[in-house]
């Protein structure tokens, strides 16, 4: 399943790159793009546990940049 989320308060390009790297490591994520310019995240992950993966994604993002919010 592929989904696009809007990100709020993502103000550092390096953080976006870091998020992307760390999210890519999550099990079940087949494709990830954190776009600093459009402030959007495109994620492709296993269907059957998508929500579970998203929870993990949120956790990873919080770690890198606690100010950034993923609008789910």
């Amino acid at each position: 399943m592929k989904k696009i989320y809007k990100l709020e308060d993502l103000d550092c390009a390096n953080c976006a790159a870091k998020m992307e790297r760390n999210i890519a490591k999550i099990d079940g994520v087949s494709q990830i793009n954190v776009n600093f310019l459009t402030q959007k995240m495109t994620i492709e992950a296993d269907d059957y546990r998508f929500e579970e993966i998203m929870d993990e994604v949120v956790k990873v993002c919080k770690k890198v940049e606690p100010d950034t919010r993923i609008i789910r």
Partner: peptide
């Protein structure tokens, strides 16, 4: 030590 100038400006140029 922050590579910010590059990380911001290159994608921005393409955009």
């Amino acid at each position: 030590s922050c590579p910010c100038a590059l990380v911001v400006s290159i994608p921005l140029s393409f955009f």
